[in-house]
Amino acid sequence: MAYKRVLLKLSGEALMGSQGYGIDPAIVSAIATDVAAVVATGTELAIVVGGGNIFRGLKGSAAGMDRATADYVGMLATVMNAITLQDGLERAGIPTRVQTAIAMQEVAEPYIRRKAIRHLEKGRVVIFGAGCGNPFFTTDTTAALRAAEISANVVLKATKVDGVYDRDPEKFSNAVRYETLTFQDVLAGELGVMDSTAIALCKDNSIPIVVFDLFGAGNIARAVAGEAIGTRITPTA
Rank of each mutant, 00 (worst) to 15 (best):
D24R: 03
A116D: 01
A130I: 06
G163K: 06
G51W: 11
G17Q: 08
T182D: 10
I54L: 15
F55Y: 14
T231M: 03
G42P: 09
G88M: 11
R56C: 08
T78S: 14
K9Y: 08
E227C: 09
P208E: 07
L145T: 01
G133V: 09
M75R: 09
A158K: 06
G192W: 11
L145M: 13
T180F: 12
A217S: 13
L15K: 08
P110F: 13
Y72W: 10
S196I: 10
A147H: 01
G60S: 00
S29I: 04
A92F: 08
A37L: 12
G93N: 11
L201E: 10
T100F: 04
A237S: 14
Q99K: 12
A82C: 09
G60W: 05
I220R: 03
Y21M: 07
Y3F: 15
V107T: 03
S11P: 04
L45H: 06
A108S: 14
A143W: 01
M65N: 00
G60K: 07
T182S: 15
N81C: 08
R177W: 07
L15Q: 05
L181V: 04
Y111R: 00
A46I: 02
T43I: 11
E149P: 01
M104H: 08
S173K: 14
V98I: 12
R114G: 05
A14Q: 07
V107W: 06
K59G: 00
A152W: 02
Q99I: 05
L181S: 06
